[in-house]
Design a protein around this nucleic acid. Structure first.
Lengths: 249, 249
DNA sequence: GCCCTGCCTTGATGCAGATCAAATGGGAAC
DNA sequence: GTTCCCATTTGATCTGCATCAAGGCAGGGC
């Protein structure tokens, strides 16, 4: 036993996930294990708006996002909805040891996922410690993100919430496409309603606060989705974040 | 290699944690590993109200709660506070691979913790796969709890929030001290202000809504802390929970 | 007994954000 | 081009909770 040479799993090479944000199932495995993982993987694609799985449905796979964006959400009987997670490329979904989905998973954009049937994946975990160590690391990151979000949902004003969301998207965008300097520019991957469901607001309030940030010169808008962050520090300030306290996703 | 006989770790026998809610670091280890864990453990106790560690402080240990209750919270510069977690006996705190605390940890009641220095614990994890598998399971539970709480913070009314909190405490109480039937009775382990910080409310609103639930006959109060849940189903209904959708802590 | 201190309740008022409603604008189909 | 469809914006009003402000009450020290 002992540690082996670090190897990038083949599905990650194929998918390009591991390089993106170092969050995928990137373990140190021997070639047998690599081969087993490789054999059990398969792809599923979804169109924007499609539901991947409903909360409570039988879920016999785990998966990582290859491209596109998916959301995790919960809905109350009367229709109130709260998004509880955003799945970006390389993010993992599904829980070893649980047979039904705990949340609605929805494709926000066109989505490609790399799936593994749950049973053999669980067996692989048992015999391959690095995978569960990697999964633990990822899950702890998600937990931090969820707790950061609890502060936002429980204590921030609408204006702060919007600024926080924009800051997160901007920060992620910068880390994906590093720029030397100048304003950060990106397209919002979410509708106003999706933003509202994420932030615990109504879509009208989201719209108003986005307009207010624009009016105040913190951001500029071209159309409804194309955002320019004129001054990132100012945005962080409005967000009420501790200086530079990075949101860990 | 392969699986070994299941063994309860000695610190868990000592602490009684593992039996309480099956959430401690209860792995299948061989006797060498048991001995190593046993050697590195030590205890720390705190009085009610004391701070265990501040967010940002160096944290060179991980720990599990033996007895008492601790809270995890985040605070904004201007003093707004949000509790992001409740640590009950057998809950684990600390993160392998991170050197500073991410949250304020505070003893709500008198508290006894069973600690392990982080460095040797991390080494043990590397060589003992069952531990990280167990930690993964626990972390996934915590993540589910955090997401459940996001729905509460983002979308529930004050009345629903209070009922949800009472339902969680009542449910935990029942699982600790199973009763044949009749009303559920317990003492609130939190002040009104702590409840408010957990629920994203003010203490005045908490007080008013508790009084309202009492007035409506959903609960009875004796003094300020001693609660009787007259009708648990009614409480769940007020909480807006899907019928019996258990909060996974 | 006294007072003091912490925790809690209750009341009055104000406001941020929800709700209800209507108008605008841009893209796709034709 | 025109029309339709939706996402979005904007306006008017309402309301749940925060805020500000007084008490009430139980426990501990003296």
């Amino acid at each position: 036993m002992g540690l082996r040479e670090p190897v990038i799993l083949p599905h990650l090479q194929d998918c390009g996930s591991c390089t993106i944000r170092h969050r995928a199932v990137c373990a140190r495995c021997d070639s047998d294990e690599l081969a087993r993982l490789e054999q059990m993987k398969y792809y599923r694609s979804f169109e924007a708006g499609q539901t991947v799985i409903w909360s409570g449905d039988r879920m016999d796979f785990v998966a990582s996002v290859v491209s596109g964006i998916a959301t995790l959400s919960q809905t109350m009987e009367d229709g109130r909805r709260q998004m509880v997670g955003l799945l970006l490329p390389s993010d993992f979904v599904g829980r070893p040891g649980r047979s039904t989905a705990a949340y609605d998973v929805t494709a926000t954009t066109d989505l490609l996922m790399c799936c593994f049937r749950k049973k053999p994946f669980e067996e692989l975990i048992l015999s391959t410690p690095h995978i569960s160590q990697r999964l633990l690391e990822m899950t702890l990151d998600e937990l931090d993100a969820a707790r950061e979000w609890m502060l936002l949902l429980g204590r921030k004003t609408a204006r702060e919430k919007i600024a926080s969301l924009l800051a997160i998207i901007a920060r992620r965008d910068v880390s994906l496409n590093p720029r030397k300097s100048g304003p950060i520019v990106f397209d919002l991957p979410l509708t106003r309603e999706e933003m509202a469901d994420y932030l615990g607001l109504t879509l009208e309030t989201v719209s108003r606060q986005v307009s207010a940030l624009k009016r105040d010169g913190v951001i500029s808008l071209e159309g409804k989705r194309h955002v320019t962050v004129n001054d990132f520090d100012r945005l962080l300030e409005v967000a009420g974040d501790d200086s530079d306290g990075g949101y860990p996703v």
